[in-house]
């Protein structure tokens, strides 16, 4: 049977949204989607997969590579080998995928962000998206991949009926690596990755005293404030607001970058935004190579005028 085995990422009772990219990948590849998930009540639309395989174990044990590998061996024992095993491209997904590939000597491609269904070619980026590679698996064996968040969720389709459910027993105790606890990130209520409209600030705004004025503008526009690395390093904005390779990857509808020159580490974190508007006084700033719209002007002057217009 030609199926894709999807390893879901679940934490504290939450079925992570990036799992939809794994499911979308299976749909795009034209494979039956079999979802492996621990027992429990997860907020999951069960008509988007063909089969749900419930593992009888606690969620905290599920993302342990030793256990996942055993669970997958069991599944292969009963259902046959999948054509493809799909993980999310997250810290835990990469860890599990590599471990599985090592254990079973399977080919692996991580951070897959595109797929050509006719040619069965996978795409992944190199050097922070400076170059893209096209890959094909060369041998007849299951392929292990991790998929980039946001890449495939649009390919998820409803199957019109609910998935069949089966269960698989969890393996007995694993002693070499035991989970102690999970510590939540400090929550302050702001998740810039969920914002539709980001007003993003860079070093070009001058100094910390300008921040409140941008906050006023953000309120007027109902935008969320984010920033580039220099702004975070100087502590003008908290770390959770940082966009870029050492911060967060965002894809809002509108990314309004003010005073951001556009170092590639920053670009990597925002280039897939639907509409990028850059305001910078330097017409040579790299950000203009990525922006859809550009304004060559002092960011603070544009801010003041915008405020006047929106208030008036």
């Amino acid at each position: 049977m030609s199926y894709a085995l999807i390893i879901s990422e679940v934490r504290r009772g939450v079925f992570e949204e990036r799992n939809l990219d794994s499911i979308g990948m299976a749909h795009l590849a034209g494979k039956d989607a079999f979802l492996l998930i621990p027992e429990g009540n997860y907020n999951l639309n069960n008509s988007i997969v063909n089969k749900i395989i419930k593992a009888k174990l606690e969620e905290s044990l599920f993302l342990n590579p030793l256990i996942i590998t055993e669970l997958i061996s069991k599944i292969i024992g009963t259902l046959g080998a999948p054509e493809i095993v799909i993980f999310t491209h997250s810290s835990s997904g990469i860890e599990l995928a590599s471990y599985l590939a090592g254990k079973m000597s399977l080919p692996i491609i991580t951070d897959v962000s595109g797929y050509d269904r006719n040619e069965q070619i996978f795409f992944k980026s190199y050097y922070s998206d400076k170059v893209f590679g096209q890959f094909k698996k060369a041998k007849e064996s299951p392929l292990v991949i991790t998929v980039r968040s946001g890449s495939f969720k649009d390919h998820v389709t409803e199957k019109g009926k609910n998935a069949e459910e089966i269960t698989v027993d969890g393996p007995s105790g694993i002693e070499e690596r035991s989970f102690v606890e999970y510590v939540e990130e400090e929550k302050t209520g702001v998740d810039i990755t969920k914002a539709e409209f980001l007003l993003s600030l860079g070093r070009g705004i001058g100094n910390k005293d300008e921040i409140p004025k941008f906050e006023e503008l953000a309120n007027l526009m109902k935008a969320t404030i984010s920033g580039s690395r220099p702004v975070i390093d100087k502590q003008w904005l908290p770390k959770e607001r940082q966009v870029g390779t050492s911060g967060k990857t965002v894809k809002p509808k509108v990314y309004l970058a003010m005073g951001i020159s556009g170092a590639f580490q920053h670009i990597a974190g925002m280039k897939d935004s639907e509409c990028i508007i850059a305001v910078n006084k330097d017409p040579e700033a790299p950000i203009f190579q990525y922006a859809h719209y550009g304004i060559v002007a002092d960011a603070n002057k544009i801010r003041d005028k915008l405020k006047d217009l929106l208030q008036g």
């Binding site: 934490r11 999970y182 939540e184």
Partner: peptide, 13 residues
């Protein structure tokens, strides 16, 4: 260890 949205503490032999 780094986990999405938090950290896990793990004891390893």
């Amino acid at each position: 260890s780094d986990a999405e949205g938090g950290k896990g503490t793990i004891e390893v032999e």
